[in-house]
Amino acid sequence: MTPKTQDFYGKEVADAIQEACEKLQVPQEQLEIEVVETGSTGIFGLIRKKAHIKASVKESEVEETEGLSTKPPQPKAEKVEKKAAAATKEIEQVEQQPAKQDEKQSITEAASPESKTLHSAESFDDDEDFEENGQLDVDEDDEEASAEQLSEEVIASVRQELINILELMGYPSPVEVTAKGTSVLCHVGEEYEEVLTGQDGKTLDSLQYLLRKIIVRKVPNRLRLTVDVGNYREKRIADLKERALELADSVRNDGKTQVIPSLSPSERRVVHMTLQESKDIRSRSVGEGLFKKILIYKPGKSGRGGGRKRGNSRGRRNNNRKKNE
């Protein structure tokens, strides 16, 4: 069919094809590919087989063919058209194996994991694709740029909004706003830290929530807005981490499940992240609504959600409450 057929090997068929593309300096669509061996990762990496393909450059053919067969008995393997974009000059080629419609379909599916490779190859060659890609890139760039640009005005309005609310609350404070990408941090002066934080940060969270709501309506961009008073957030995170580790230790010692009550999503995240590193301890959120408690427990012993655990957790929770106060 084609002048020079070369052999290529790779961990997977896709790798082999990519190598072929590089060696022969053509996009994949212009390759005549016959898969000799699909290769396998083997068991525990013991019986590894390399994927083996035969590839050659098609002449004056803007077509993409794909062959897949586990054994190499027939030199003429099934060929598949994959891209509608390349379909125009397709017909003569396809006629070579007119009876293989069904196989084609299944093969197309089988070959789809390779589409990544395909994409990179296409952008060289297919004008249309290239333009589309280019267009997409430009759009993304625009978006990013505008997000950064707008932030300047946005920051000012976020700051003003927060200042207004604080003043109306009767706790006028200096506000410092810093932005990193789309995340905006509003830092409120520490003078009224206690009252603005509230119990377990409830007031601060309310302030943050309302400010977000207000800003969403005022500003076209999506922002990740955080409000902090003094160093509250940082302190809170440090506290939670410490507490999580303490409780994890006590779970390790006596195997009893421990509970931290009433945490907001971001606080729960901190606890889960902290405990993720310790392999022998698990953490899990229970409850409904925004504020949930976290169970810290030893996996295995007590059955999931078993009565024993519940009894324990209730007892523990009271202890924790005392600790909190």
Binding site: I165, Y171, T203, S206, L210, K213, G289
Partner: peptide
């Protein structure tokens, strides 16, 4: 009011913080 009264709750929280003074 907000979802599950969240906005109303937040306003109440701020209000009570303001009244604490």
């Amino acid at each position: 009011i907000g979802k599950q009264g969240r906005t109303a709750r937040a306003m109440r929280t701020l209000l009570s913080a303001a009244a604490e003074k």
